Simulated scan of single mutants.
Amino acid sequence: MTHADPIEDLRKRESEKWTAYPADVLPLFVAEMDFPLAPPIKEALARALELNDTGYVNTLDTRTAQAFADFADDRWGWRPDVARMGYATDVSTVIVEGLRRLIAPGDGVVITPPVYPPFWDFIPEAGGVVIEVPMLDDGTDYALDLGGIDRALAAGARAVLLCNPGNPTGTVHDRATLAELSRIVARHGASVLSDEIHAPLVHAGATFTPYLTVSDEARDHGIAAASGSKVFNLAGLKTAMFVSESDRMTAIVRSLPVEVGVRAGLFGFIATREGFSHARDWVDATVAAVEANLELLTAQLAEHVPGARLRRGRATYLAWLDLRALDLGDDPAAWILAHARVALVSGLDFGPAGAGFARLNVACAPETIVEAVRRISEALGDRR
């Protein structure tokens, strides 16, 4: 399994995770890993530095897109056509620039809370209006409300911004659900932009289904956003990809200004290519470490904070915690930061369905999880 860097080294980092709070706060909020870079990535970046290779990207170089296509073929039995792909700085750019071309100003775009908080910002940036269709929650699993999406599209929404797999819930949408979604969207003449940034982080026993593989309708009206930034911890290196599978969507990708691709980072191109090509064993070891940490978190909460419950998803390194039984109000993350000095993401950031919840990042050392639970338990004890 992958092992985290020592805490004393982590605190030397300049990324948001390690500079946003004072040193007495244990940061388990933003989606950054505490794990070292995959060795092939680190070696490739070191070679680039040795060559002083810090210039502009060549957007005609298809090797990074090809590496992703090879990885997708190996893991999901899907080989996207590199000729239909395009580059961007990050998945947020893919979403905003894609939506700008899929909708008209003022059109509604469906999102499915609890969901990645920036979705609420991306849609108005692209000229759209957010339409919330909350996920169905049976107390154990979350699922898309297909009937609600159908009604929203019938009422005039023109696109669905899909989180596949889900963040923060870790929901891995099955093929049948996605195929039915594609039929609903096609019936209303709408489009789908599928954020698939967490796809390589699906856990053992679960199967990720790329949206563009589920039907001819999905291929006709869908664009996927792909990146190595989450799986390889490369957010600061700025590279993502538009993926299309139809002439209509490919025309949209090709209509993008050249600068959308040129603004990507050369180190991102290099790191993404090396990760998808040569770090697949590292991905497996990292997912195993994440799963072990989720098991540890479950056990620690049961022993020390029995009112807390991990809503276990099947993907990502993000733990969705139901803390409503602790009676800490709608925003337990704020109380935990103030009293336990552990930084989580407020469940409210993911929409109204997140009241009483918080998100915790488990891409860290097991000792960090134990310490976080200890702090929360002691703070709750002091309150009592």
Rank of each mutant, 00 (worst) to 15 (best):
V160L: 15
I223K: 03
R75Y: 07
R47F: 02
V133C: 01
T368H: 02
S191T: 13
K17F: 07
H221L: 15
R324S: 04
A88I: 13
M135S: 03
E295M: 09
L49V: 09
L234Q: 06
D73V: 13
P114T: 04
D70I: 11
P257T: 05
L296Q: 03
R375D: 11
F119G: 00
E32V: 10
S182T: 08
A325H: 14
L337Y: 13
S194N: 07
E50G: 12
V109D: 00
A299Y: 08
D9L: 15
V130R: 04
V30I: 15
E303D: 12
S92G: 08
I270K: 06
E43D: 09
D74S: 13
P200Q: 03
D141N: 11
T64Q: 08
P36K: 13
V214H: 07
A340D: 08
A159K: 07
A334V: 10
F71W: 02
V91N: 02
R13A: 10
V109K: 02
T171G: 01
S15T: 11
A363N: 08
E217D: 15
A199W: 04
P352C: 11
I197F: 03
G108A: 11
A69F: 10
R254I: 11
F68T: 02
R375V: 14
T250F: 14
D331Q: 05
A31G: 02
M135E: 03
F122N: 00
V57D: 02
I131N: 01
E259Q: 11
R13M: 14
V373L: 07
V345N: 00
P27M: 06
A176T: 15
V110F: 06
D70R: 09
R47D: 04
F350W: 13
A225E: 06
V82T: 08
L146P: 09
A72C: 15
V342H: 01
I184E: 00
I197M: 05
F357T: 00
T272H: 14
R75S: 12
D216W: 10
R175N: 10
T272S: 13
A104H: 08
G106A: 13
D81H: 11
G127W: 14
V342P: 01
